[in-house]
Amino acid sequence: MRLVIQGVCFSYGGSDVLADVTFEASDGEIIGVIGPNGSGKTTLLKCINRALSPRIGTVLIDGRDYSELTRREIAGNIGVVPQNSVVSFPFTVLDIVMMGRTPSMERFERESEKDLEIVKKAMEVTNVVELADRTMDQISGGEKQRVVIARALAQKPKILLLDEPTLHLDVNHQLEILDLIRKLARSEKLTVIIVSHDLNLASRYCEKLILMNAGKIAASGEVTEVLTEKNIESVFKVRAAVSYDRHLGAYTVTPIECCR
């Protein structure tokens, strides 16, 4: 599914938090959104699924302006894994994943066989089937993240948005989650947009990067074009060494010191 973001501006009342953001994404592509705190990354994600409405600009899903779509139709196209996925109620894992079917169900409809099939498949690919009857307070952080991804997949989305999916996870689970996302992007032909603070993981897993600064796109394109020492210095105010790691087959960023 082709996602086009065109000239999107957004403000919370005062000055623009997003100013004229334009980019495109297509099937199976993983796009990383990076940038300092407060640069508008999360706001951008929220504008993409219309949790926030852009002040100006359009978002097109396969050529259709999404302002013509209802909340439910958007939820049927875009799955979201939000940053704060803490669930304080003892819902079971199955309950949570089943909630992903909400947008496609009528108010009085019960879950059908088809819904169950979709939920089952979402739980299989994210490897949470054996957790099905556990409650959310009985599983680990990495497992919770997989459950929330399973719920997003149960929406049968064509676009998957993830806000810091590896935050609070140990290295092992960071890689596990990102490997899963890469696998899903390919097998389900999902368009994936990930917001991340981890430049190294973004460089390894994303095909394209968007570097945000103060609500604007400072640089975008291939990893090598975006993750340059010069860009990092001007946006993050940090002197960094960027080098190619041949074991990884990816560029790594080593921050050295803050610029005065």
Partner: peptide, 14 residues
């Protein structure tokens, strides 16, 4: 149910 998980989740689920 969905509102109890959080407002943001509820919006995302339509």
């Amino acid at each position: 149910n969905v509102l109890m998980i959080g407002e943001e989740h509820a919006v995302n689920l339509g």
